[in-house]
Nucleic acid binder design. Structure first.
Length: 420
RNA sequence: GUGGGUGUAGCUCAGUUGGUUAGAGUGCCGGGUUGUGGCCCCGGAGGCCGAGGGUUCAAAUCCCUUCACUCACCCCA
């Protein structure tokens, strides 16, 4: 019989790893809550239209990476490639804007993009996603960036590289795009084929190219920061000033452009050297105008996403989770097995991790099992102990053994274990 | 979608210029005198050498095809 395997680019998260996931999740909840962010959970599927309108029809994500299928009633549905669109949809749908001026939300869960998998990139991957609606002041940019840094540091990450940039707005970006195209036309033939194509489709993407010759051409290209309108310039200056005051280290990377069409003004990214080619650990930016594009009120927005798997690969002290057992019951013989089983069931109901072997194996073998399960204590008994009503309780660390009376056995074990 | 690398035991990997019954470490199970774990010693189970085809007296080894994994490009978290 042929084995059925997981889908390419999808991963099982095994028991030895799940505690690490839980740990990071609880740090996120803790840190975000102190900034006033509340958790929202949105579906992993949406109508395809939602992503087309938010992310942009001509982006790679929408053009070739989405898992889209036709439902039985002919409706086009898509497994979410990112969370922002869904959160905005929910924000609008539940009229959250009328409940409060500023809304702070976060969510976490799986995202889906049909790319070729490689290090730090999977078809199902997980993101922690943060969104702040209803405030266009630079302080909210700073708050969100600071929270991101705070969170990553709380996870134990060091040597983070924060890069920020301003992408301009609807008013000033078109002029910049044109200037870039004009500049590139001069040396069009020296550009790599990809960049020649980008010139037409999405000129700003040329800044992302890693080809040696393109990099040297782009080094002298116009900089977005020289084309910002007064509003964008003031906004960006304020963001930088606050970050300086807060001693948040960052680099301005005027070549940083982001792959989702909706970003305006502040864009930021956190990179790590531990990741390989896909070195972007978290990224986000401002998206004023997107909420109204999706049918909501004209409110500002800013947010970011953190790659969960990428974050985990950056963590320095990742440990595989081991077994941990309070009490192992080594029962010898049929009578002992029966008593032991009843005891195990009762202990578990009392919240104590109790384990035993249901087949009547040799004591040596049961002791080995107890050791493997990292048990703190092992209760040892057979016919002799039952007849004498005196059971042996071995402390596995000290090797001391004490005698426990069969009467009130449950309570005395609970007391001993809870005292530790 | 395009390249490169790798596929041998549950896991990590050896395997010579093609040559007997394919190995090690680790893990798993059992044993080392009656009922006491970790260390040590002994034994056992576990492989269609990724799959299919070809060359040859003979293929894990050489050739072709294919699949999977992986890294990189594209792009992004």
């Amino acid at each position: 019989m042929e084995k059925i395997t997981v889908i390419k680019g999808f991963k099982d998260i095994l028991p030895e790893d799940t505690p690490n996931w839980c740990r990071v999740e609880s740090i996120a909840r803790l840190v975000f809550s102190s900034y006033g962010f509340r958790e929202i959970r949105v579906p992993i599927m949406e109508k395809t239209e939602l992503f087309k309108r938010s992310i942009g029809e001509t982006t790679d994500i929408v053009e070739k990476e989405m898992y889209t299928f036709c439902d039985r009633d002919e409706e086009l549905l898509t497994l979410r490639p990112e969370a922002t669109a869904s959160v905005i949809r929910a924000y609008i749908e539940h009229n959250m804007f009328s409940a409060e001026q500023v809304t702070r939300l976060f969510t976490l869960g799986p995202m889906f993009r049909r790319e070729r998998p490689q290090k730090g990139r999977f078809r199902q991957f997980h993101q922690i996603d943060v969104e702040l609606f209803g405030d266009d002041k630079p302080q909210s940019d700073v708050e969100v960036i600071l929270m991101l840094v705070h969170f990553l540091e709380s996870c134990g990450l060091t040597q983070l590289a924060l890069e920020i940039n301003s992408l301009g707005c609807k008013a000033c970006r078109p002029a910049f795009s044109k200037a870039v195209v004009d500049y590139l036309k001069g040396s069009e033939k020296e550009l790599c084929p990809d960049c020649q194509r980008r010139m037409i489709t999405n000129p700003l993407r040329v800044f992302d190219c890693k080809v040696e010759s393109c990099i040297s051409i782009i080094a002298h290209a116009p900089r977005i920061l020289d084309y910002l309108c007064t509003g964008c310039e003031d906004h960006f200056a304020a963001v930088k000033s606050y970050l300086n005051d807060l001693h948040v280290k960052y680099e301005v990377n005027s070549a940083m452009v982001r792959g989702l069409d909706y970003y305006v003004r502040t864009a930021f990214e956190v990179k790590s050297g531990a990741l390989g080619a896909q070195n972007s650990l978290a990224g986000g930016g401002r998206y004023d105008g997107l909420v109204s594009d999706l049918g909501g009120p004209d409110v500002a927005g800013i947010g970011f996403g953190i790659g969960f798997e990428r974050l985990l690969t950056c963590l320095p002290d990742l440990e595989k989770s081991k077994y941990r057992t309070d009490l192992f019951i080594a029962a010898l013989g049929q009578r002992a097995q029966k008593i032991g089983f009843m005891l195990a069931c009762q202990l578990r109901r009392a919240g104590i991790t109790a384990a035993m072997d249901y087949s009547d194996k040799s004591l040596k073998s049961q002791m080995k099992r107890a050791d493997k399960l990292n048990s703190s204590y092992t209760l040892i008994f057979g016919d002799k102990e039952i007849d004498e009503k005196r059971l042996e309780l071995r402390n596995m660390n000290t090797k001391n053994q004490q005698v426990l009376p069969l009467d009130n056995l449950l309570d005395s074990i609970i007391n001993i274990i809870k005292e530790r």
